[in-house]
Design a protein around this nucleic acid. Structure first.
Lengths: 200, 200
DNA sequence: GTCTATAGGGTGATAGAC
DNA sequence: GTCTATCACCCTATAGAC
């Protein structure tokens, strides 16, 4: 692994654990096993490093979802596919949600600007979903619901446990492994709840 | 309002907006319209101030839920009551979830210790819920489900939008008022989804 | 109680040797 | 490319006047 990759890996760990404000360049350097000055040699500033990592995490989290949302699966199957994909991603990267959501919270304007620059596809995906729901509703397959509400419900059920991961682990005494297993075990339950909610 | 109250109010605002690490004593002092030194006169350190505010927020968020969870309402009504109470609290204090969850994330051990000291009632509430579900299941009223899963599902559907508040507002263009209205408007939908999930 | 001034320590960033 | 040394700033906390 190159030094640059070592640094990025270390920085990813520290930034996702502590957030931008509490992260220390010194800790990143130690984690990477190199000197503090070298971080600046490769990435110039803490801010630049953070931006690279944030965009990478943001993309890796939302990539794939649009593909599924805009596929031509019938809505009930689409729900199952999105939930499946979401939980797979979350189990692989359990730290992403709180990392992204917290940074957006600390600095909403900057983060929203960045997201808009990166990715204007969320509103479009919701529109397409609305159209599909309308169609299947007219065909008498499902209830009429809002595409946006549906997306929020899917996200809520999938993502929230990961946002509250440390609270859940602390309260129940689960370790990391047990938590991930618990999160995955809810898949069919979540899909069932969502499908029940829109089936006639 | 006394100086102490002014400080607490200002500190609450800054801590909940920025989190502990990014919050600045100077900003709190300016917000309170007083001198920085006075913060230390009243509260000694940033940490002490934070602890007071964190515990207050944590309590005000969970207070009331146990009462409802351990009441003798049938489970379907209990769900409606919890969701109603939760959304009321969230609309009044929309900033609490990400504040609490993020601080737990940055410093899990310390926060979990504090929570255990404060409040050991979550596991008990879950146990009682399990017993009630078992009873109503045997009476043929509802499906058999896990009390813990149910609690997670309620929390997910109620809390997640508030955790993602700034993302949702940024992506949709809603302002604060519109967001709160949207969040409240989901109440019946959430209750319906949850009740459907356990009705026979 | 409230202020000004400043100590004291940490943190991001840079200069310069190798 | 990688290091040591150091700068310059920021931030919490305290001392001391009023």
């Amino acid at each position: 692994m190159t030094t640059e990759e070592q640094i990025l890996q270390a920085a990813t760990k520290v930034f996702t654990e502590k957030g931008f404000a509490a992260a220390r360049m010194d800790e990143i350097a130690k984690e990477a096993g190199i000197n503090r000055a070298l971080l600046h040699y490769y990435f110039r500033s803490k801010e630049k490093m953070f931006e690279i990592i944030f965009e990478d995490k943001f993309r890796s989290f939302f990539a794939g979802i649009y593909g599924i949302l805009s596929s031509d699966l019938p809505i009930l199957e689409k729900i199952a596919a999105v939930v499946d994909h979401e939980l797979q991603t979350l189990v692989k990267h359990p730290e992403i949600p709180i990392f992204i959501l917290n940074e957006i919270n600390v600095n909403p304007e900057r983060m929203i600007r960045r997201i808009h620059r990166e990715d204007a596809s969320i509103p479009e995906a919701v529109k397409m979903l609305d159209a599909q729901i309308q169609k299947e509703f007219e065909q008498g397959i499902i209830k009429r619901i809002g595409g946006f509400s549906l997306v929020i419900e899917i996200m809520s059920l999938c993502i929230y446990p990961f946002v509250a991961k440390n609270l859940i682990m602390g309260v129940t005494g689960m370790d990391r492994e047990a938590f991930l297993q618990f999160a995955l075990s809810r898949k069919q339950e979540i899909i069932g709840i969502l499908q029940n909610g829109i089936k006639l």
